[in-house]
Amino acid sequence: MTISRLLSDRRLTPYLFLLPAILVMATFVYLPIIENFYYSLFRWSSIDPRFTFVGLNNYQRILNDPIIAVSLRNNVLYAVISVFFQVFIALVLAAILEGRVIRPRWGSFFRNMLFLPSVLAITVVGITWQLIYRPDTGLLNQFLEGVGLGFLKRTWLGDEGTAIYSVIAVSQWQWVGYVMILFIVAIQAIPEELYESARIDGANLVSQFIHITVPLVRETTLVMTTITVIGAFKVFDIVWVMTAGGPNHASEVLGNYLYRVAFRNDEMGYAAAIASLLFVITFLLTFVQLRLGRSGEEV
């Protein structure tokens, strides 16, 4: 019974424990990535599944496709705005909640309430905000009208100038509370004595925040920044649900455009090339993060 002998070989034990994970990751994560590169060298569609080899043509097209440029710009916007709100603002809010100004019981209440949007499904959030953004019956325009800011009324999702910002705003609404909790956890790990001695030295809340909180949650900040930035390049569902990239591709992001090209424009090969671009971007960002993380350890 060679199998049972194999199983009883202690040197193999860790590999056996890892086997299911490796198999699943290989089949459903890594194999598809490799296949994707292969597919990107062909022209084919869902309706006419004949593969025509086109070499690097699909990649060449990426360089000249204005919608790719718009998508990239939107992904970058998504990243920048998200870092501001989900890292910077979330950190400030966490510091206020942990800053002894708000009673713990209320702090816990606020924390839970701000966290709540993040447990909602993307379609719940997306459809809700579509209704809020509706130009005529939507909550937002009615609110603006009601408080005398009627001139600010917009067709939020229908205007090329505001569509992507309106979608990004929803992401902030959903995730700020979530990241805030992560920062709260990080702040709670800071030894209380540091704050005490700062207070004895007469430091006010702002300077405590700048000199104690910010440096000591540096690692969490770095992790959150990377994850937020990478998340901004992965974004698909909220855009798909709210605008599907419209109007006139104004709110297109890479993930959304990829899906559209694959399953609407009948260009699977080109979609695979866009997927490769997305892969390269996330890979580079991860690489940068690892480097930054390492230099962080050295400091």
Binding site: Y259, A262, A272, L285
Partner: peptide, 14 residues
């Protein structure tokens, strides 16, 4: 770190 979109089309075929 990987975006699931990258695997979408091949996953579909798998």
């Amino acid at each position: 770190m990987l975006a699931p979109e990258v695997s979408l089309i091949p996953l579909f075929r798998i």
